[in-house]
């Protein structure tokens, strides 16, 4: 092994680390042990790496970041934990509770905020399997991509249109939610629509509520027929442009 090869390998060798036992470095370390010039180079390199590593580790995250992360993680974990209960157990618990508390069955009536957070979590957890922008939705997508702003004043999407367009449908608290994904000004947006009768009576107009978790951001509003949640994965600023 010549100097050039040994140096190439040893530049990836971490000082004060478990790399000493890694056979990949054995030959290069052995060469350094028998070559004072290479050994001196290695010592300089490691001293440099230590100094640089110490400098980088001295950079502190901004105050408040830790708390913001913890708050966001708690919120999402709380939402998710509701859906981790096995379906049969959740159903049994709901039925038992309904019979205990109410003489008649009452529908689950979520708030606008819960709907917005559901939509955000839906997008965040859907991963690569997410497909809300099928080819046959192009008319609806084009409409949303150019609809007048703010979108929350009049998304101009009818229930019939959503149903007829064969949108992706997901369930929220037992109710159908239609989803349309569209692109506008280089950002992807995901519009979720829930029939208004499935939202809690008196649920507030949530336009002023903008929730973000990292780069995910969501808001919700309603009109006479639907409650809408709009979600983006491109940050709160991208969402503000539309509402």
């Amino acid at each position: 092994m010549n100097h050039h090869e040994a140096k190439f390998l040893l530049r990836a060798y971490r000082p004060d680390s478990g790399d000493a036992g890694d056979p990949v470095f054995a030959g290069a370390l052995d060469a350094a042990n028998h070559d004072p010039a290479l050994q001196a180079w290695l010592e300089r390199e490691q001293a440099f790496d230590r100094a640089l590593g110490a400098k980088l580790r001295g950079i502190q995250p901004p105050p408040g970041l830790r708390d913001a992360i913890l708050a966001g993680s708690r919120a999402s974990r709380h939402r998710r934990s509701r859906w981790k209960i096995p379906a049969w157990l959740a159903a049994a618990a709901c039925i038992a509770l309904a019979f205990t508390l109410f003489p008649r069955t009452r529908p689950i009536e979520p708030s606008a905020r819960e709907f917005a957070e559901f939509a955000l979590n839906e997008l965040a957890t859907s991963g690569s399997g997410h497909n809300g922008h099928r080819a046959d939705l192009s008319g609806l997508q084009a409409h949303l991509a150019s609809a007048s702003l703010p979108l929350s004043d009049n998304p101009g999407v009818s229930g019939d249109e959503l149903r007829d367009a064969d949108c992706r449908v997901i369930k929220f608290a037992g109710h159908d939610v239609f989803e349309v994904c569209f692109q506008r000004d280089g950002h992807w947006y995901h519009l979720y629509a829930l029939r208004i009768e499935n939202l809690a009576p008196g649920a507030v107009d949530a336009r002023s509520m903008l929730t973000s978790r990292g780069l995910f951001a969501t808001t919700a509003w309603k009109d006479a027929r639907f409650a809408y949640a709009l979600v983006t994965h491109d940050g709160a600023e991208a969402l503000r442009k539309l509402i």
């Binding site: 995250p61 901004p62 970041l65 992360i69 993680s73 999402s76 991963g127 990292g214 780069l215 995910f216």
Partner: peptide, 25 residues
């Protein structure tokens, strides 16, 4: 994140985003 994004605001967002995905997935 700071070395990649080059500004503290984006670095903070990326870090939060990472833990949010962690919490959900």
């Amino acid at each position: 994140a700071l070395s990649l994004a080059k500004n503290p605001s984006d670095a903070g967002d990326l870090t939060q985003q990472t833990f949010f995905v962690w919490a959900t997935k």
